[in-house]
Nucleic acid binder design. Structure first.
Lengths: 174, 174
DNA sequence: GGACTTTAGTTAGTGTTCTAACTAATAATT
DNA sequence: AATTATTAGTTAGAACACTAACTAAAGTCC
């Protein structure tokens, strides 16, 4: 358990209780596996979408706008699960790419609605099949039941963490 | 399936095949769930480690050095799963914080070995229990069998993606 | 043994995300 | 009605990760 990749020992680890020393190996940590998975997913998707001028950052916001066009910037932030400064940058980039527009609200001059351009909307037909493809490749070799289980377990731990973070500090990760 | 959070319809989605339109909803995409999971995990861990002066970026490198102290910078990159410019920055920060040292190789003047300081090594006893705790909180409510399944499934999809990315472009994500 | 290739590390520049601190507009309170 | 508080959005500055292009050292190959 405390033997590293190339056979050396990490003697310090052995001083710790077993339940803890397990996490000396990244492969045993959910966090590490999530990180590698997310990075792989993101890289694969971006390779497909970037020829169409869409980066992985823009992608997440586009998807939300396809579901519900014209939210305020705040609403968009909450739904995508990002902080507002992130949304500002992302929307700037969508506007710059001609995929969305900022439309000042008429009844509340603080608010701005984000609306897709025809180009932005039309990309759904091209891009959505790409996520489907990446999901398929990522889950290759798993049964439908296993995939369902994976989704359920991931939702469960995400729920746990959202609760945990909400409890302690402020209001991150909706 | 194509009804958004607040009850509006997203009519365009309905033009697509069902297997694809499923992914219009982020909650059905493995990629989205991995991203949220990773972010939650990272935030929770950083809240615990930052009082000890360790950021989530440094953390990953520290853990690898605890397993195997004194690798070259290249070796460290590969084992942590990051590109070399990232490692340069991370090692700079570890050195600056007094947690590690750069030690020029004697038999090959291109190489540099990264070695923990006593301080860097001593943090293991403090920090490793924190990951254990975060893992526990994240997986609360799941049985041991479910956790084992989750790890297995995550390793599986990570393997798929590593293979996929290796095949197509260059050499990302080890 | 001098020209080419590979390897190790760095620098430069970009994208994504965050927190903290700000401006401006609206709502609430006395 | 004037002050105070809240809400929406922005800017500034940082961390983390990437690709592309570079320097320097070591290895290969006529």
């Amino acid at each position: 358990m405390t033997v590293s990749v190339d056979g050396h020992f990490a003697p310090e680890v052995q001083a710790l209780p077993l339940e803890i020393s397990v996490y000396a190996q990244p492969e045993n940590s959910v966090g590490y596996l999530l990180r590698m998975g997310f990075r792989g997913f993101s890289t694969m998707l971006e390779r497909k979408t970037s020829p169409h001028g869409v980066s992985s950052g823009q992608w997440r916001f586009l998807r939300q706008l396809w579901i519900d066009d014209g939210p305020t910037q705040r609403e968009l932030s909450v739904r995508v699960g990002m902080r507002e400064p992130t949304t500002v940058v992302a929307v700037n980039s969508l506007v710059k790419s001609g995929l969305a527009l900022r439309e000042p609200s008429v009844e509340d001059r603080r608010k701005v609605h984000i609306r897709l351009t025809p180009l932005g909307r039309s990309l759904q037909a091209t891009l959505l099949p790409m996520v489907a493809d990446v999901n398929d490749r990522a889950t290759k070799g798993l049964t439908k039941a296993e995939i369902a289980t994976l989704l359920r377990l991931l939702r469960h731990i995400n729920g746990n963490m959202a609760q945990e973070l909400e409890q302690i500090g402020g209001d991150t990760v909706p």
